[in-house]
Design a binder for these strands. Sequence first.
DNA 1: TAGATTGTTAATCGATTAACAATC
DNA 2: TAGATTGTTAATCGATTAACAATC
Lengths: 209, 209
Amino acid sequence: MANSEKKISKAVIRRLPIYLMYLEELENKNVKGISSKKLGEMTGFTPSQIRQDLNNFGGFGQQGYGYSVNSLKNEIGSILGYGKNKKGIIIGGGKLGKALASYERFKYVGLEVVDIFDRNPDNIGTEIGGITIRDVSELEQYVKNNKVDVGILTIPKESAQEYTDLLVENGARGIWNFASTEVKVPEGVVVENVRLNDSLSVLMYYLDN
Amino acid sequence: MANSEKKISKAVIRRLPIYLMYLEELENKNVKGISSKKLGEMTGFTPSQIRQDLNNFGGFGQQGYGYSVNSLKNEIGSILGYGKNKKGIIIGGGKLGKALASYERFKYVGLEVVDIFDRNPDNIGTEIGGITIRDVSELEQYVKNNKVDVGILTIPKESAQEYTDLLVENGARGIWNFASTEVKVPEGVVVENVRLNDSLSVLMYYLDN
DNA sequence: TAGATTGTTAATCGATTAACAATC
DNA sequence: TAGATTGTTAATCGATTAACAATC
């Protein structure tokens, strides 16, 4: 990293996966090099912004030529922490939990989902994506015995905080929260909310505005 | 609306559902009034920002007192278009499509999911959330005969553009896109992307940064 | 009335865009 | 070399925060 002192804004980080997506597309089309100008046309960002964003992390380009698709893809992947092999568990084996359990992308991003917990006896014991759903009453014992980096919450909002606390107290450092509530965590723990409600609300607003 | 000419930034719109969530919480706790200061403490936004945001749409507060929880909740709901009764269909009856089909919040937000389409024969004919999954080969005929306001895409990225085009050509004005690709739409059509990949990538980044 | 809190204008801050020298 | 495009500084733009008069 070029300058680990400079604070990088969240807006920059959120654009990185978008760059990555387009770079993968280019790679699939066997395109070797790309300029900030062309990448700007593809993504809708300005070339200037793309160069600014990338230069937060290093000078990945070459004057007069642009960027190598493959190496820029790898650089961004590495910035985002791909290949880190973190362990995650899903709390909530309902429909959304099951959908996520069979989500192929996890491994690519560097997160391995190792277990799923639910409280519904109909779900416990069933298998999904190669993982057998366990009884959530075993969760406390489980997190004391197994390292869990990320908890994925697909449970009703009422119990989101309770499970967050349990996970965080036992070493989890990230929460991917699909519950429609905010959870409190101590300093150093990351929460990424997926707010389907909010996303839908924004869509509904723009439908008529 | 106080001033329908002034351009309201997307950042403001994205905060509205968050305010709404907290207002609902307050209402459930039987709290009648709230000041921007207290709402700021709850949400993490500054009181100033909250007042600025709300005043884009009107003067909902009362000097010396604050805001009525109930009426502010209703105002924001109405701004977002709740209760509009739009029709939506889900394209893709896989796990994620099924999870969304049984998603209670739709009706509250003003979107009624009336049908689901899939191409997998194992899914076609099965029922989910009171809706029977139909064969996607019927989709073209369907959209010509039925008004569809919003298409909800829970399909692989390869076919996202194709179904977007079909929907938009037949009158859909909103796309809630869960496919991990960007879809192109003509002016006047709204796309709201839910990028699980990107959200997870951002979480992974902050896990170590 | 006095205290509280809004609505709104002005100041600040941060993010985006433009410009251009460096250089491949 | 000449042309192209980066990396980076400076300028602009927009969003957030501060301040305060209006007023309940």
